Amino acid sequence: MAGRGSAGIRERTYPDGRLEILTGTGLSAAAGLNAYIPMLLLGLLDRYTSLVQLPPEWAWLSNGWVLAIIGALLVLEIVADKVPVIDSVNDWLQTVVSPAAGGIVFGSGVSPETVRVSDPDAFFGSNQWIPVAIEIGIALAVHLAKMSVRPVLNATTAGTAAPVVSTAEDAASIGLSFAAVMLPVLVLVVLAVAMVVLWRVYRRARRRSRPADVGL
């Protein structure tokens, strides 16, 4: 197991914090698409590589039992998210899970000084809680966007789009997670590409639904 250090991502302590913010943003956005992928990735990289050093407060994320549980939940998420109707129910459940996962991966993936809560009064009395709240908000916003698009796609394609779109979301989550860890400057590029692709898919589905609406 990799040794514990003071930074979440090994040898990535940036004085200005800008790349650190990109790391947290990429991980949180990835959690919005799939709550379990970034958590599993960080835990595995910490346990089996030297790329990630989880802060002591987040060492539990690389525990074998925790990784097994996250892996099992990921399998259930992948299956449920590809079945029409069930995917919408799953999205409602993930409305709580995804923001929580966004906060976890932000706290474990960046410098722990940003999110250490040894004194809750001092924590909320300072500005330390702001980046945590922002990253939770990013995960929630991404998840809500995904959640609003999915019913439209299911309705206009008789559910056939569900597995395709879900697979694309999983791939984007993996890409964002790896970009956040390996090369944070790519986070903005991956986010931009994912947003453009999802928007184009959404617009195409909406155009297909218009003739049916007119004929009613």
Rank of each mutant, 00 (worst) to 15 (best):
Y202T: 07
S173T: 08
T95D: 09
V193M: 04
V149G: 04
S88N: 14
L22K: 05
G175Q: 02
G175T: 01
I21P: 05
G43T: 02
R47L: 10
V66S: 05
M39H: 08
V181M: 04
L33W: 12
G64R: 12
V75N: 12
V149H: 09
L33Y: 15
T25L: 15
L41S: 03
S177L: 00
T157R: 10
I9P: 00
M147H: 14
I9K: 02
G125S: 11
L19N: 00
G137Y: 06
L51K: 09
L27V: 03
E11S: 10
T25I: 09
L176V: 06
L73Q: 10
V201P: 02
S62V: 04
V190Q: 00
R207V: 07
G159P: 07
E169S: 15
F106A: 14
L19D: 00
V197A: 07
S209Y: 06
A139C: 05
L153G: 04
V149T: 10
P84M: 14
A205V: 02
L67P: 02
R18K: 15
L140V: 09
G71L: 00
S173A: 13
A141G: 14
L61V: 09
I130Q: 14
M147Q: 13
S108P: 11
E20T: 09
L41R: 04
W58G: 14
I37H: 09
A100D: 05
A100L: 10
S118H: 13
N127W: 14
I69Q: 12
G26A: 01
D170S: 05
G26Y: 01
I104K: 04
A72D: 02
G32H: 10
A155Q: 10
L183S: 02
V110A: 14
V115F: 14
D16E: 05
D170M: 10
V75H: 13
R150I: 09
L73F: 15
G103V: 14
V196E: 04
I86H: 06
V187L: 03
A192Q: 00
G175S: 07
G175I: 05
P55A: 03
R10P: 01
A2M: 01
A145S: 13
L183V: 05
G24H: 12
G125N: 10
S111N: 12
V115Q: 12
L144M: 00
E135N: 15
I37N: 06
V110E: 11
A192I: 05
A161H: 09
E135M: 15
I174P: 08
R208S: 07
P211K: 07
V83T: 06
I104H: 08
L140R: 04
S148N: 11
N127M: 11
A179P: 00
V190I: 02
V115Y: 12
A179I: 02
A2P: 00
A68N: 07
A162Y: 04
W199A: 02
L61R: 03
W199Q: 02
P56V: 14
D121Q: 15
G107K: 00
Y202M: 12
P184S: 05
T157P: 00
V85Q: 14
P84N: 12
K146D: 15
P163L: 08
T156G: 05
F123D: 15
S126Q: 11
W65P: 03
N127K: 11
